[in-house]
Design a protein around this nucleic acid. Structure first.
Lengths: 134, 134
DNA sequence: GCTAGTCGCGGGTATATACCCACAATATGG
DNA sequence: CCATATTGTGGGTATATACCCGCGACTAGC
């Protein structure tokens, strides 16, 4: 509970805690919450390039590239050359689809636990978090 | 703004944004917000061991050890053997004191910027973040 | 159509973070 | 006092994250 009233420190700490909560919930699927999130985006959306996806997620390109490489090493996604020879297409493998399908109800349970901790103030929290990114 | 409504993802994103804000503000001091926070704790509190400090900060022991090693490499803290030959004492060097003194007003400015973004809902946010760690 | 700029990406480096395991020092139970 | 448990750290490994730089691919101005 000690944070010297530093808002940033409190946010970082809450992010650590909640990551642990979600990661634990997702563990049976072999995914962590970052991987889950990324797989879901790759499955459900069309992107021209990693750059575009990175912008969408507010992540650095190089960070996204490394995160995707983790998924690739685990055989959850595969990369192909896109139309443009610079751009990279990424698609879920069957393993990736399976892991994601297994993870979805687990994610939902974590989300529910989080909601209960927040005592139905989830929308307030999300609104405040959005304000930070102004 | 896209997060699939995942509370954890929103928290992680907000932590990234706010870290960037504080890190930028603190840049002239050569510190990042994690280092600032850690230096302040080391200066202002007495700890028997790294383990105790790690508990206090809700950080893994090994994480704290590595974070402190960064401060040590930069000459901001020095380690000595404690009474117990297992335990490690850490103290700020003069460089550490100076950097921290330089950083304090910069931290305050970041904090103020954050408060303004949150439109005086800071206490609400901190209360919600605490609830997550229940 | 060549030159110059822009775009997409990876790699190097650094920090922050966690987990597990091993080792050394201390405390504890008989 | 010795065997055992506990405590305090560090190192190995992995992920998440960012910054900077360079290279190869495309595009636009002329």
């Amino acid at each position: 509970m000690e944070n010297g009233n530093c808002i940033c420190t409190s946010l970082r700490r809450a992010a650590r805690f909640s990551s642990e909560l979600y990661d634990d919930a997702l563990a049976p699927s072999g995914l962590k919450v970052t991987m889950y999130r990324l797989l879901k985006q790759i499955r459900d959306r069309e992107f021209e390039s990693l750059t575009e996806l990175a912008d969408h997620l507010d992540l650095e390109r190089s960070t996204l590239g490394r995160n995707i490489k983790v998924l690739e090493r685990r055989g959850l996604v595969a990369r192909h050359q896109g139309a443009d020879e610079r751009a990279m297409n990424v698609e879920l493998t069957q393993s990736g689809e399976d892991a994601l399908a297994e993870a979805e109800p687990l994610w939902f349970a974590a989300q529910k636990e989080m909601r209960s901790r927040l005592d139905d103030s989830v929308d307030d929290l999300l609104r405040l978090l959005d304000q930070i990114e102004a």
